[in-house]
């Protein structure tokens, strides 16, 4: 794990960037605007979403937008756990968190691929 630090950091950075730039608006629309009916009824939004995302470019955007933040969180939580006073569990905690992020990524690819 230590040998791959630059990789974890790059994924962390990319995830943070996506999380900062894309996530707020995307989340707001999908999880607040649509449910409250501000942008049309469920059928309209369903069709609009399918049009936008059920294609290779849309799918790529979704995979990047959803999966990278997993890596970001995993890496930051790993450091957070060290800071809470568990530096010696780093190997275990890190492996677990990165594994979770990996699973999350695979699931994301699967779910998005099913669009």
């Amino acid at each position: 794990m230590k040998r791959l630090e630059p990789l974890w950091w790059l994924l962390f950075g990319a995830g943070g960037f996506v999380g900062a730039v894309l996530l707020p608006a995307l989340y707001f629309m999908v999880a607040v605007g649509f449910p409250l009916g501000w942008f049309g009824d469920p059928v309209e939004t369903f069709l609009r979403m399918r049009t936008l995302f059920a294609n290779p470019v849309g799918q790529l955007v979704l995979v990047v937008g959803i999966a990278l933040p997993f890596w970001h969180s995993a890496h930051h939580l790993r450091h957070f756990v060290i800071e809470l006073g568990f530096p010696h569990s780093d190997r275990l905690v890190g492996s677990l968190l990165y594994a979770l992020a990996g699973v999350g990524t695979l699931v994301t690819v699967g779910v998005v691929g099913a669009l």
Binding site: E5, P6, H79
Partner: peptide, 13 residues
């Protein structure tokens, strides 16, 4: 700098 006790330990505080 990029070794075991180097930059990668930083936690962005």
């Amino acid at each position: 700098l990029a070794g075991e006790h180097g930059v990668w330990n930083c936690s962005y505080a």
